[in-house]
Design a protein around this nucleic acid. Structure first.
Length: 427
RNA sequence: GGGGGGUUUCCCGAGCGGUCAAAGGGGUCAGACUGUAAAUCUGAUGGCAACGCCUUCGCAGGUUCGAAUCCUGCACCCCCCA
């Protein structure tokens, strides 16, 4: 059993715990069972979830037992923590699909097998779903003083807002999560809950409940929220969250997200997410500071994470695509290569006859491909030197495309700016 | 119910009856620099068959040679007094 507390500390993954002094020894004593919860709000995890999963991984590798709890029940209610507005309730079918998707990913990231130290993936609907309302009020609700509940940040901040209320349903969320902890303790010997710092209130609610209900001493630990140096949430792009599911965020896009990370954030992310040990990590960071132009830290981060999430093959595909996107002029590629590499890029089909004769005006092509909203904009972009065909700059706004411009048998690649691509297929 | 203020382009915001496709800022998009970063600088920023034409200043009418600008009605928002 390795010292997971020390590791979490140097990785700066501990934001707050219920017992800073006692936890290291407590964890060293014997294998413990630790859990983190995930509400099934979508059918895939996103980068924001990676923190908690990653912490479970570290516990597991250090010899402890990890439980990933999917909130089939709590997900029906909606956690007000970190939320400024009341949530929309999800339907049961949607929840089930979401749980299935998230469970598949968690199973890949944690070690789940038949061994006794296997991680567990549980769904709290399995026990919460059977609870009767009266029974719950008597057995659980009785132990929650409302005045204490009202002091929790998640509740307080919502009540202070005049533009959004808080329903009784969401108000009750913390009772459910608190009960989960007690249940997992009873059934699976779980004694430690981890989560993002916004989960503190819910975690301590569980600890309080366990003490009152069973006289048990449980522990809690939170990790910092994943934010960027500019305060924005990490894992968000203009087009939305960065997902782990390749159908939602392709390996290439995933890889690029990390490659593009600000210098200011890359060190933290390496510490948070990768398995590099302290010495190696410091080496990578030092080298990066010496020669930031190499983007060594970003590259390493992107490689490690893409491999973790998408496997060696996903990583290879992402790197192939990157080489082409940021490489020189596109030569002869087969359509199969084009299709694979440009899978992430919007593509349009046009009739082959459009290339015949005079050819197709580049201006029109940019519009068709969605790279320009109007011909005026397309013309402007070209004039300013920002349009490319097969990675070669278009010189004149009157330029036209003919069959000679095809990069493959039937397709060519348009680009505006540094990295907005589109493929045109001429069938 | 009474009184006052407001509604402008992606957002904020200026706008004398003509010279207004509409200042300025933000954003966005290109370019330069660089490192696929940040910062900075430059340019662009309603549409189109483009020295011209068309559409746009809450909505509908009206006055006028001419309306974002004046008048009438309507809608929505804000403030003050009840």
């Amino acid at each position: 059993m390795s010292d997971v507390y020390a590791e979490l500390t140097w990785r700066e993954l501990i934001h707050q715990s219920t017992d800073d002094a006692g936890l290291p020894g407590w964890l060293a004593e014997r294998p413990r069972t630790v859990y983190a919860g995930f509400d099934p709000t979508a059918d895939s995890l996103h980068v924001g979830h990676l923190m908690a999963v990653n912490i479970l991984r570290r516990f597991q590798r250090a010899g402890h037992r990890a439980i990933a709890l999917l909130g089939g029940a709590t997900g029906m209610i909606g956690d007000p923590s970190g939320r400024s507005q009341e949530r929309n309730l999800l339907g049961e079918d949607e929840l089930r699909a979401n749980i299935a998707g998230m469970e598949r990913q968690i199973r890949r990231l944690l070690e789940v097998d038949d061994s006794p130290r296997s991680a567990l993936v549980l769904d709290n609907f399995d026990w919460m779903g059977r609870f009767g309302y009266l029974e719950f009020l008597r057995d659980v609700g009785k132990h929650f003083p409302v005045n204490v509940m009202l002091t929790k940040d998640s509740v307080k901040s919502r009540l202070e807002r005049t533009d959004s209320g808080l329903s009784y349903t969401e108000f009750s969320y913390m009772l459910l999560q608190a009960y989960d902890f007690v249940y997992l303790n009873e059934r699976h010997g779980c004694e430690l809950q981890v989560g993002g710092s916004d989960q503190w209130g819910n975690i301590t609610a569980g600890i309080d409940l366990a003490r009152r209900l069973r006289g048990a001493q449980l522990y809690g630990m939170t990790c910092p929220l994943l934010t960027k140096s500019d305060g924005a949430k990490m894992g968000k792009t203009e087009s939305g969250a960065v997902w782990l599911a390749p159908e939602r965020t392709s390996p290439y896009q995933f890889y690029q997200y990390w490659i593009n990370l600000d210098d200011a954030d890359v060190g933290r992310c390496l510490r948070f997410f990768t398995d590099l040990d302290q010495a190696e990590l410091e080496g990578v960071v030092a080298q990066h500071e010496q020669d930031p132009g190499q983007r060594g830290a970003q590259r390493r981060l992107a490689v490690e994470l893409t491999r973790l999430v998408h496997g060696a093959e996903g990583l290879a595909a992402a790197q192939r695509a990157t080489d082409v996107f940021f490489g020189a002029e596109l030569g002869d590629l087969t359509d199969a290569q084009l299709t694979e590499i440009f899978a992430d890029v919007p593509s349009s089909r046009l009739g082959r006859d459009r290339l015949a004769g005079e050819g197709l005006a580049v201006v029109d092509a940019l519009c068709e491909a969605g790279l320009a909203k109007s011909k005026g904009e397309a013309r402007r972009t070209i004039t300013q030197g920002g349009a490319y065909v097969n990675n070669r700059r278009v010189e004149s706004p009157d330029a036209r495309l003919t069959p000679d411009d095809l990069a493959g048998r039937a397709a060519l690649v348009l680009r505006t700016g540094k990295k907005r691509y589109a493929v045109l297929c001429f069938a």
